[in-house]
Amino acid sequence: MSEHFILPRGDGPSLLAVDDLRVAFGEKQPVKGISFEINEGETLAIVGESGSGKSLTALSIMGLLPAGGTIAHGSIQFEGREITTLAPREARALRGGSIGMIFQEPMTCLNPVMTIGAQIIEALRQHQSLSRKAARARALELLDLVRIPDPHRRIDDFPYQLSGGMRQRVMIAVAVACSPRLLIADEPTTALDVTIQAQVLDLIDRLRRELSMAVLLITHDLGVVSQWADRVVVMYAGRKVEQARPDAMFGNPLHPYTRGLLNASPRLGDSYNYIDGPLYEIPGSISSLAGDRGCAFAPRCAHVRAGCRDAVPALATLSHGRQVACPVLLSEENRVTAVDL
């Protein structure tokens, strides 16, 4: 696909390295050992349906697992430093400092009784020694950076006075206030209208370049992944099942789950209509698990074999950092390595 132009993006050393992360809630283990790296300046997307463990993975990095959840195993290294064992004070310095984050619903994340300016100033003064005056000036710069029109007038507004898209811009301003190295965006546009979604994702991408930060994008939306990610990790039931560049993943999905998802989604660029026939269906739901021994997708899989229920398939690494956890399709398609560009 030579017509794709590749934006200049960092291939530098890894900024974040997650290794065999397992998250436990009592007996349950919703994240069952996931590993990935994020390089400086790149956008890595984790895509999955509800119950895939994608949000818990993001919250583990932030040290913000919900009550009852613990990191049962594995390590998370940020800039070469282990962050799962940080003291609360050090963790607070990291959050909102070197790692910024934004969430799905800006209305519930912003404080409704504080002006947006006060919230940005609070974030700044928490991490940097700035005078009130200097912090306010910086807050105005940040509102301008995230393209809030007329920042001088808006800075003293309360969140309820802003639209959903504007609130998400304010959330982004708070998140990037201290020039983080990594921005974690957990479903940042799911609550937004589609024309506003495009604006917000373009904004995040512009800031990524201007502030040379990396972005971890958590989403369920394959379209968003295809347009804004450099690499994609597909999660299913707490594990990584596939990892690829978007053009490779959409052009030639290798895991039966990824294939199923792509086939099951009606495409905007496709005139296929209900009159022509039904959509492809992945049977069952993510709750139909195969127990802990086998491949979690086996009960829903069109390619399932006897061995699939006996052991969790290992991730095979192909060229260009591509990974897939399905020996059945790999053996059926020996040509995959050849077309894996």
């Binding site: 024309t195 495009a198 379209g223 295809s226 804004w228 978007p246 959409f250 792509l262 495409r267 660029g269």
Partner: peptide, 8 residues
């Protein structure tokens, strides 16, 4: 505005 895998 709709992001579509089939289209840049």
């Amino acid at each position: 505005a709709v992001p579509d895998p089939a289209r840049r």
